[in-house]
Simulated scan of single mutants.
Amino acid sequence: MKITRLLPFIGAAVLGLAGCSKDTDSSETSKLEVRLMDAPGDFRSVVLDVRQIEVHLKDENDPDGWKTLGFKPQTINVLEYVNGRSALLVSEDFAPGDLKEIRLILGPDSYVVGTDGQRYDLKTPSGQTSGVKLKLDKATLRQRSTFQLLLDFDVAKSIVERGNWRPGNDKKERYLLKPIIRVVAQDLAAGIRGTVAPAAALPQVLAIRATILGPDTVSTSADASGAYQLNGLAAGTYRVEFFPSAPAPTGQTAYHSETRAGVVVTNDNVTTIPTVNLQ
């Protein structure tokens, strides 16, 4: 299986899928996802200014063990991600091995909007400098699988009102941000499989899931019998696209592309798509 954002044989109809994932042999790599969800609090909005995400790969006190992940700095309203919804922050190929810690570097632009409709800046005592560090227990990335770190942000416990604040004081000084985040680490063992005909079309298969980062695309090629399987997928709803990479023999009907929308994938299960005919 290969992970990619754009394949060279795909025409202009799918150019919008272009991105920056690597095209590597997934038998030697894993995939790492970092997602954020929220336990609700008594605010209209809670916006975090996330500048950088890192993971630690070595012993706890080794300063050289940090690796920066492919995350685009952004502000995230965590209250949009409740009741099972989560924001995908990172999705990238990663070498198998153990992760010791994850660290979020926060910028100065975090804020809340209270029930009074007023915006209050959030002061972060340590997150703006050394970062918010979260220890990981038994976080091991394995070959040909997706490993997900789900960061469960507790709004009610993380946002603390200053004891000396009174109405009429400078509203920027009302709240402190002291992040309380629970980390849920899990292997993702879901997949999609099926058969594409005719096998002579050398079919390519793309499974595309919409995320906050844009389309997340996993691809593979059918084997000599037309069978394919995509492993290590996150749960969600996918659009699966099938493309011939070889022309039909002279005198035969030309091969064409096909799409199957609304393919639901659940954790630890492999979803089977009925045979897809490209001719």
Rank of each mutant, 00 (worst) to 15 (best):
Asp187Val: 05
Glu92His: 00
Asp187Gln: 14
Tyr111Ile: 01
Phe147Asn: 12
Gln204Pro: 04
Ser126Cys: 08
Ala13Gly: 15
Gln204Thr: 15
Lys2Pro: 05
Asp268Ile: 09
Val90Asp: 05
Ser45Leu: 10
Ala139Asp: 02
Arg44Cys: 00
Val205Leu: 13
Asp98Pro: 03
Lys171Ile: 15
Gln148Ala: 15
Pro96Lys: 04
Lys135Tyr: 03
Ala39Cys: 06
Asn267Tyr: 03
Asn164Ile: 15
Asp170Ser: 10
Ser145Arg: 10
Phe71Ser: 03
Phe94Pro: 05
Leu177Val: 06
Leu89Asn: 05
Pro8Met: 03
Arg209His: 09
Glu241Gln: 13
Val240Cys: 03
Val46Leu: 09
Val205Cys: 06
Leu6Lys: 11
Asn231Val: 10
Val160His: 00
Glu258Thr: 05
Val90Arg: 03
Asp23Tyr: 06
Asp116Trp: 03
Thr75Asp: 02
Leu278Val: 08
Phe9Glu: 06
Ala235Tyr: 02
Leu150Tyr: 09
Phe9Ser: 11
Ile76Trp: 04
Pro247Trp: 11
Gly97Phe: 00
His56Lys: 06
Ile3Leu: 11
Arg174Trp: 01
Ala235Lys: 07
Ala224Glu: 13
Glu80His: 11
Gly191Val: 09
Leu150Cys: 13
Val50Ser: 04
Ser257Arg: 11
Asp170Phe: 06
Ile76Gly: 02
Arg174Cys: 07
Leu230Val: 13
Asn77Cys: 08
Gln128Lys: 09
Ala12Gly: 12
Glu33Ala: 12
Thr217Ser: 14
Ala199Gly: 05
Thr220Cys: 05
Ile181Cys: 02
Ala199Asp: 11
Lys157Gly: 01
Gly114Val: 12
Thr124Cys: 08
Val263Ser: 07
Thr266Glu: 13
Val132His: 10
Ile102Asn: 01
Tyr255Leu: 04
Thr253Cys: 00
His256Ala: 14
Ser30Met: 08
Ala227His: 04
Tyr81Ile: 08
Ala234Gln: 12
Gly16Val: 09
Ser21Ala: 13
Thr146Val: 07
Leu69Val: 09
Val132Thr: 13
Ala248Met: 08
Asn231Glu: 08
Pro108Met: 06
Ile3His: 01
Ser86Ile: 03
Asp49Gln: 09
Glu60Ser: 11
Gly232Asn: 03
Arg193Lys: 15
Val46Met: 05
Gly163Arg: 12
Val240Phe: 00
Ala185Lys: 14
Leu149Pro: 14
Pro167Asp: 10
Leu36Ala: 09
Ile180Asn: 09
Thr271Leu: 00
Ala87Tyr: 14
Asp223Cys: 04
Asp121Lys: 04
Lys22Val: 11
Ala207Gln: 06
Glu54Asn: 12
Ile273Val: 12
Asp38Glu: 15
Pro247Gln: 12
Met1Gly: 11
Asn77His: 02
Asn231Gln: 11
Val82Pro: 00
Pro63Arg: 14
Val263Asp: 01
Thr275Cys: 05
Ala227Trp: 00
Lys123Tyr: 11
Gly70Trp: 00
Leu69Pro: 04
